[in-house]
Design a protein around this nucleic acid. Sequence first.
RNA 1: GCCGGGGUAGCUCAGCGGGUAGAGCGCCGGGCUGUUAACCCGGUGGUCGGGGGUUCAAAUCCCCUCCCCGGCGCCA
Length: 485
Amino acid sequence: MRIRRIRAAQGAPKSSASGSGTATLLTAASYTRVRFRFIVVAVSIKRLGRLYMDRPVPIAEIIEGRHSGRTVTVRGWVHRKRIVGGKAFILVRQEGEVLQCVYDKAEVGQRVWEEAEKVTLESSVVVRGTVREDPRAPGGYELRGEDLEIVGLSADFPIKGGESIEYLLDHRHLWLRSRRLTWVMKVKHSVMQAARRYFIDNGWWEVTPPILTGSAVEGGATLFELKYFGSKAYLSQSAQLYLEVLIYPLEKVWAVTPSFRAEKSRTRRHLAEYWHLEAEAAWMDMWDMMRIVEELVKHVLERVLEERRRELENLGRSLEPLKRAVEERFPAIRYDEAIEILQKKGVEIEWGDDMGADEERELTKEFETPFFVTHFPKQIKAFYMKLDPEDSRLALGFDLLAPEGYGEIVGGSQREDDYDTLLSRILEEGLDPEDYDWYLDLRKYGTVPHSGFGLGLERLVMWIAGLDHIRDATPMPRYRGRIKP
RNA sequence: GCCGGGGUAGCUCAGCGGGUAGAGCGCCGGGCUGUUAACCCGGUGGUCGGGGGUUCAAAUCCCCUCCCCGGCGCCA
């Protein structure tokens, strides 16, 4: 009985273009859906009318023209509303897409018209009507509204347009409903899925290193300290050392984990909490690992260009730099050459200086694809990097910088695999070897040449989506004391 | 930590050679037969971040303090 009604309400052929369950009730998934609907109905049939029971159609499909002429039900939130004369224009938003629903006072019943008058911005609604192609509608398609049901009437919504960034960040839990942030989250989703796909397809093992750690990975970065059963512990700033442990059983490993940095950074490229994609592999030298990074980034770009083209275009992102990055080899220059280029451009920098944000930005202007910088002076790099056998002043480290001023998105290196050299590097940096006893052990029991890298997911998303601030690459950004919501 | 900027209506801001506050948006009411951040008319709205001082009088001048923002360093 109910099932019949669901189908009838759909008003579409059973082989609906959505393909999501209406056609067959035989699969486990659709069986569950129907059962679930019974439960919902049982609990809320008094409060909610019959529309709630209909199978909803995604707005994206309507905008693509896949339901023209059909009577459909759509669920979502009121994005915008205007009443002009005898018509109510209600824009419903769902997963970042909007659909205009037009209610004509002369055509709909009194109950529906009153609901249309009453409904407020951001109310959750279920609407039903016939899909029509209409050039006057945003998106080219609209719904000639026949029914409207308010599920959750919204109080006056605090975001109306024109607010400052700080105000919006204070209301991030509501701001995230914006179409722009929704598109960015979708891009990030595809980036993560594509990266996972790359590793799976190429024989890498996904592992789960700890987030609570007993000591710093590197000396410099500030760590978040916390109490741990009466002693001190820290939130991880990198899984690298643990990944190095795991290459002995698994050879090629990778992980995505949160990383934490307690620096009081106030730049558009830093977060206190970010998602870190790290990989580590035995038997690979620096050049092998750079090839992996290039393949990975290209694979991610290809997938995102395929799956998220619409969102990128909506975001106003120029696709050309992304396409170029897929097609062209990433150049690699040595630190020496980078310094020369900068000096020729009139930047005051000398061999041995670390590149600051300004220098990095200048350098990215010289390239149109991501590019590597390699062979840095050892004093500006971490203790665990292997020294260049041909010049012991240099470390076998590499950075991948994104073009268009975005800068570093990956940092990697070949790791020091010799026990004595690693120990002396730890002492040189003023670190306590006792903190690294287990790490040193790895060089004692069957040491192996190996390399790895860390990629800042939000940095990558920032570049791909063309964001001007990294905070929009993550739903609830944490930085410089911002912890709410 | 350093350099720079700022806290005035629900929001965005103006007012700062001292005379106890304004605009736009929002919100509320009304109008409008297709709106696109609609538009038009009317209404609503503030212990001017906190404390102290100078003065007949302080949003405005002085001192202290709190908070926030942009950038740098650090890095992914």
